[in-house]
Simulated scan of single mutants.
Amino acid sequence: MTEAPARRTPGTPCWVSLIVHGLGTTQNFYAGLFGWEFVPGPDQLGPYVRATVDGRVVAGLGQMAPDRLLPVAWTTYLATDDADVTAELIRSCGGTVAVGPLDAGEAGRMAIASDPGGAVFGIWQAAAHLGTALAGTHGTPVWNELLTRETSTVCKFYQTVFGYEAEAVVSADFDYQTLHLHGRPVASLHGIGHALPRDRGPHWMTYFEVDDTDGAARRVVDLGGYVLQPPRDGSSGRVATVADPEGAAFTIVRTAGR
């Protein structure tokens, strides 16, 4: 268990948030899976709570307006020192800004955007709320990966907007790039071509740390969720891709060395 960095380098994944139709039911699911407890969050856009582990915030859950029929999906937020400047840069580089920039009370300033391939992400300019405050223990975000058709074009977008350095895996049949800031890996891009789900398209995937991947996958089903890809050993540890009862997909992982 470690404290997450208090100050976020621009471009670092700093928060994950999920907007759902049934907030109470979703809280029960994640409380049962990760042991999350909840505290109130900013409610300018509707009911919103922050999930906590050992009293420290790790993620956000919000209630979707009844008249909105948007896909339910976890959103990765990338840190910025100036949400307005970053939003303009996103637009100038071929991305789209769908919401904001706008203030989330005293917590900070945010926007929801999408890259040229259509993958949705958020940007967060921290004020009172710095973002995820804990890492390395059960129920905390551990990694963020963009699943997209091919990485070369979209990688240039993220490099220009956030200043990443990219390290590509050189392989004829594996399209993968790791994004670095100041020499530290912070996220990855995985080109999977036609293997992308037709109903989702390019999207950011949140990885959550668990103590036992196989046990957590069974718990997902017991709580009304789904296993999309069963537990398997990967380069980062033992992983499984699952979804909550409303269909929001995420990956659970017991990282290697834990």
Rank of each mutant, 00 (worst) to 15 (best):
R254L: 10
A243N: 05
Y176S: 05
Y226S: 15
E246I: 01
Q159I: 09
S235T: 13
R198V: 14
G193V: 05
V169K: 08
D175I: 07
T251Q: 07
G183D: 13
Q229T: 15
W204V: 00
P202K: 01
I252S: 00
V169Q: 12
L179Q: 02
Q229E: 15
W204A: 00
D214C: 05
V154K: 00
Y176W: 10
D222R: 14
R219C: 11
K156Q: 10
A216V: 10
A243K: 02
Q229H: 13
Y176F: 13
Q159A: 13
F174Y: 15
T160L: 09
S236L: 11
A248E: 00
A166M: 09
G225F: 02
T153C: 03
T206Q: 06
E167A: 13
T206L: 02
P197A: 07
V161C: 04
R198N: 14
L196D: 03
P197I: 09
T160H: 10
E167F: 07
A249N: 03
T178E: 10
Q177W: 06
Y158W: 14
Y158H: 03
S235L: 12
A187P: 03
Q229D: 15
L189F: 05
D233V: 09
R232V: 10
C155A: 12
Y158K: 02
R219S: 14
A168S: 12
S171N: 12
F174D: 06
L223N: 10
R232N: 08
V227P: 03
V154T: 03
V239Y: 01
T178P: 04
R238M: 09
E246V: 02
A243F: 02
I252K: 01
G247A: 06
V170G: 07
A248M: 02
R232Q: 11
I252N: 00
T153D: 08
E209H: 15
A195C: 08
Y176A: 07
P202F: 00
P231C: 08
Q229M: 15
E246D: 06
F208C: 08
P185Y: 11
R218C: 12
D199V: 08
V221K: 08
S188G: 15
R218G: 12
R184L: 12
V161M: 01
L228N: 10
G163F: 11
D175K: 02
Y158A: 01
D173Q: 13
R238Y: 06
D175N: 12
E246N: 06
L179C: 06
R218W: 06
D175V: 07
V221S: 10
V227N: 06
V221E: 15
E246R: 01
A240R: 01
Y164L: 05
E167P: 04
T206H: 01
D175Q: 06
V239Q: 05
I252R: 00
E246T: 03
V227C: 12
Q229K: 09
E165W: 06
P231V: 04
T153G: 01
L179D: 03
D173F: 11
H194W: 05
T251V: 14
T251L: 03
D214E: 15
G193P: 06
